[in-house]
C-alpha cells in the first residue's frame, strides 16, 4: 500500500493536552504532538495504555470535557483549525466529515434505542433526507457492513446483538455520512480474534469504497501490520518514532519500538525462545523528569538520556526520539 502524493487532510501542530488535577494544577498527557494524515491514508497510533493515544483521538473530535482539561496547539482539518471553530460548527463536523468508533461495542450503543434509530440519527443530523430515505440509507449502510437481515436488525435493540455485530453497527453509523476521516480507537480490542479479522477486513474495504482516511489507535502490532500505511509510536505523551509501516516493522530504531516488537509472539518462529517483555511501567504523568521518559526502562540508556529529553532525529523518512541517533538531523 504505497502512499502516493495525496492531499493533506489533517495536520496537528504542537498539540498539548492538559488535565486538571485535584490540587488545582494540571498534568500534561500529550506533549507537543505533531501529526499529519493524508486523504485516504491509514495512520496508526501505537503505544501502551496511558501513553496518551486515546486522549489524542478524543481531542481531535474536541470531546474532552471542558471541566476535565484543555488543549493547546492547532488541529487543522480540511483547512479549519478545530480548536478555534464554534461548538455549532464542531457538531456539524462530528459524525459527518470526521467520525469515530470506540473500543467497547457493548456499551457504545444506547441500550434503550433501536438500531435503526441510532443509525438514522447521524444521517438525520447531517442531511435533509426524509424519514423514509433515512431508513433506506440506514438499511443500505447495515448491508454494507455485512449485517445479514438488515431490515430486521433495524427494529432490534443493541442487547439483542453480539459484540461483533454491535461493532459493525458502530462502523455503519460512523460511515453513514461518508466521513473524510474515521478515528478508530482500539476497534477490535474487545472482540474475539476471528471477529477481529472480519472487522479489520471490513474497515479496509470501506476505506477503499469511501476513500476515507483512518486514524487507528491500537496497541496491537498485528493490527498495525494489517491496516496501517504509516505508524507513529507514542510513549509518555509524545511521539518517539514515526515511519511507514514497512520500515517500522522491518527496522525499528527506538529502543521502545524494538521492545514492543520483541514482546509480540512470532507464530512462524519454530524455536522456543521466550518473549522479551519491556521491564517496568510507563512513568506516572504527574512526575516531572528531566531526561528521556523511557530512560528507566531502556536497555541502551546512557548518561545523557538521564539528563535531557531527546528531540526527534531524522533518519531518512524515519523520525526517532532517541539520543542514540544524535548525529542525525534534528526535526523538533
Amino acid at each position: 500500500m504505497a502512499v502516493t502524493e495525496e492531499k493533506e487532510l489533517l495536520r496537528v501542530e504542537q498539540l498539548c493536552i492538559n488535565f486538571k488535577t485535584e490540587d488545582g494544577g494540571h498534568i500534561q498527557a500529550v506533549k507537543q504532538l505533531n501529526l499529519t494524515i493524508k486523504e485516504g491514508e491509514t495512520l496508526a497510533l501505537v503505544g501502551e495504555s496511558g501513553c496518551g493515544k486515546s486522549v489524542t483521538s478524543l481531542s481531535l473530535m474536541r470531546l474532552i470535557p471542558k471541566n476535565a482539561g484543555f488543549t493547546e496547539g492547532k488541529i487543522i482539518f480540511e483547512g479549519k483549525d478545530l480548536n478555534r471553530v464554534s461548538e455549532r460548527e464542531m457538531r456539524s463536523i462530528r459524525g459527518n466529515s470526521m467520525s469515530m468508533i470506540f473500543q467497547e461495542p457493548m456499551t457504545s450503543l444506547n441500550p434503550v434505542h433501536k438500531i435503526g434509530k441510532q443509525i438514522g440519527e447521524v444521517i438525520y443530523l447531517h442531511s435533509s433526507l426524509s424519514k423514509a430515505q433515512i431508513r433506506e440509507k440506514s438499511i443500505e449502510m447495515l448491508k454494507k457492513v455485512g449485517i445479514p437481515r438488515a431490515e430486521k436488525i433495524m427494529d432490534e435493540y443493541p442487547h439483542q446483538l453480539s459484540g461483533g455485530m454491535r461493532q459493525r453497527v458502530m462502523i455503519a453509523m460512523a460511515m453513514a455520512c461518508t466521513p473524510k476521516l474515521l478515528i478508530a480507537d482500539e476497534p477490535t480490542t474487545a472482540l474475539d480474534v476471528t471477529i477481529q479479522a472480519q472487522i479489520l477486513e471490513l474497515m479496509n474495504e470501506l476505506k477503499k469504497d469511501f476513500q476515507t482516511a483512518i486514524l487507528l489507535i491500537t496497541h496491537d502490532l498485528g493490527v498495525v501490520a494489517e491496516m496501517a500505511d504509516r505508524v507513529m509510536v507514542m510513549y509518555y505523551g509524545q511521539i518517539v518514532e514515526q515511519a511507514d509501516v514497512r520500515t517500522l516493522l522491518k527496522s525499528p530504531k527506538h529502543p521502545y519500538t524494538i521492545g514492543l516488537l520483541n514482546s509480540v509472539p512470532d507464530m512462524d518462529d519454530e524455536s522456543d525462545k521466550p518473549l522479551v517483555p519491556i521491564m517496568g511501567n510507563v512513568p506516572n504523568l504527574g512526575v516531572i523528569q528531566a531526561g528521556c521518559p523511557f530512560y528507566a526502562r531502556c536497555p541502551q540508556a546512557f548518561q545523557k538520556c538521564h539528563l535531557e529529553n531527546p528531540p526527534l532525529f531524522k533518519l531518512g523518512e524515519q523520525l526517532v526520539r532517541c539520543w542514540l541517533y544524535e548525529s542525525q538531523e534534528v526535526i523538533a
Binding site: M61, L63, R91, S92, I93, R94, G95, N96, S99, M100, F102, E104, T107, S108, L109, N110, P111, V112, H113, E121, V122, L125, H126, M170, M173
Partner: peptide, 25 residues
Amino acid sequence: QDYIRTAQAKGANLYRLIFQHSLQN
C-alpha cells in the same frame, strides 16, 4: 456512559444528549 460519548461523536447537541439519549436511561 460510553453511549453518550457516541451520541456526542455523532454530532448531537446538548438538548439531544439530555432528552434523547440520557433521560430515558
